[in-house]
Design a protein around this nucleic acid. Structure first.
Lengths: 287, 287
DNA sequence: CAATTTTATTCGATTGATATGAATATAACG
DNA sequence: CGTTATATTCATATCAATCGAATAAAATTG
């Protein structure tokens, strides 16, 4: 038996829908459907009551899903054994730029607990520049920040990933197009003083031509996206955040210069006491 | 991840050899090798130290194998959920013909514990005819016997499987061939009075032409095979028992009439109090 | 209750994974 | 040191999984 069948079963039981599960697992609805059909055949049991749409888990299906959790947990423990970083011990102070913490911190934490059980972590969130300063002063061992312009070259900078910046607007304003929208709706601007804020400001200056209806500055990605959903205005933010927070009331548009990227990087002191652990910390940020 | 990779890992760790594991799992050595390579890649870990031949499990490999056991156990519990026979409750008295009990009883027991946790069983072993009699008298609810000639037609007979009868001889006598061997070595005959004994007697009368060196009657398959290993003489027994008990000192030969079969069947009283459970009992005899 | 939307299943085609057998390489054994 | 036992590699064939499009079925809406 293959555990990915069990994982999709679990996902379905979480989201109560084949289609949603398919999205979460990055595959087609058809694949999910086939997988569940396959699973039911292998087990020679009917896990779903297909008189309902979406199909509803049968009592047996529910029981199987519970056992499935046990299987994937056991599998996870097996894999953890292989990916442990036993040399990572002691206490680490790690900073996360606010705009990335929601996405990177949770997986970092679960990875850390699994793979570096002997290490302890203190977390701190803030603006890129402040975090950078603290790493330099030794108040933090490492920080995940937005790279903007030039970074202090006395720090070691490991680029972790690049995120496209995309526009998010209320669906009602979507058909207008970008240019028109700027004239009639306020732009929700993430703090222009921050690392990512500077990038946003730069792009708006370029594409907006200064012809902007009005500008609202906010310091919170979630709040901005809530405003978009409410129809207050439109915004420009990293794609993963937009995707994470958007619902069906939000239209997504891509800038003309679609090479507009925000770089997230891990900064450390190249010859600090925890320099040898940089790679290990970096590895905990993924998977 | 696919659990069959873990199962082969476990089998290898049991038998300490890729080749043996391949045999047990009914696949080629090459497949086993590929699977383990695959597993090591997936886990990004080296489970075997290939400076040894057969490869030796690394400490990590050993640890992984332990966790693998947990995974397959969890998987087994999941499958058990689906194959439960919840309507099989109460106490059942089941007989096994001695010559089949060693092979069928263990799997029956594990299946019963897994799939019919609410039922209790009493077991009894004996000769086919005696067991048949007890089923007829209601002293047993069911029995697995060797079908010989005509069975009492007041009993329900479900043929479970057919087993080929094969000769087993000490390797030293192997090259002689069957006819020659009969002239120089004693034949180890399983009790001629029993169901399977009758079949054996029948075949020996046919192929032996009465020209037999000598005949030793024994009532125990294991004992007969031990004698064969010791070089005492040769025998004719069901293939699965020979395969189970043979070692490299034993040569196996097939009768000219290789259609010679022994039928194992489940007999029950067609209208007894447990008649409705016959199918369920039958299903417990197999995987 | 019919029309429409949402959601899942089925189907054909393509792609990828896995097993096999033969050839090769490597460790173990006498 | 040659032989045997054992595992790996490679090419090939077979089988399974995924995708996208078409279809079917339940849920929702007017």
């Amino acid at each position: 038996m293959q555990t990915h069948l069990l994982k999709t079963l679990l996902k379905i039981s979480q989201v109560q829908s084949f289609a949603l599960a398919a999205e979460h697992l990055n595959m087609t609805l058809s694949a999910v459907s086939m997988q569940m059909k396959n699973l039911e055949e292998q087990l020679d049991a009917s896990l779903f009551d297909r008189k309902f749409r979406p199909p509803k888990l049968t009592p047996l299906g529910l029981a199987v899903a519970e056992k499935a959790q046990a299987v994937v947990d056991a599998e996870q423990k097996l894999m953890d054994l292989c990916h442990r970083i036993d040399h990572l011990t002691g206490r680490y102070r790690v900073g996360f730029v606010s705009t990335a913490s929601a996405r990177l911190l949770p997986s970092f934490l679960t990875n850390a607990l699994r793979r570096a059980p002997d290490a302890k972590f203190d977390f701190e969130t803030g603006l890129s520049e402040q975090l950078e300063e603290k790493v330099f002063n030794g108040q933090l061992d490492a920080a995940v920040i937005t790279v903007s312009g030039q970074t202090d070259d006395r720090l070691k900078v490991d680029v972790l990933l690049e995120e496209r910046l995309v526009f998010a607007a209320p669906k009602s304003l979507g058909p207008l197009g970008l240019k028109a929208m700027m004239l009639v709706a306020p732009f929700l601007h993430f703090m222009p003083s921050t690392g990512i804020g500077k990038l946003i400001a730069q792009e708006m200056a370029r594409s907006g031509d200064g012809m902007m209806h009005s500008k609202l500055v906010l310091d919170n990605v979630e709040a901005i996206m809530e405003c978009v959903k409410e129809g207050v205005g439109f915004t420009l933010l990293p794609e993963p955040d937009v995707m994470r927070l958007a619902d069906n009331k939000v239209a997504i548009m891509y800038p003309e210069d679609s090479g507009l990227m925000r770089q997230l990087a891990l900064v450390t002191l190249p010859d600090g006491p925890t320099a040898s652990s940089t790679e290990a910390l970096k590895s905990l940020l993924f998977d």
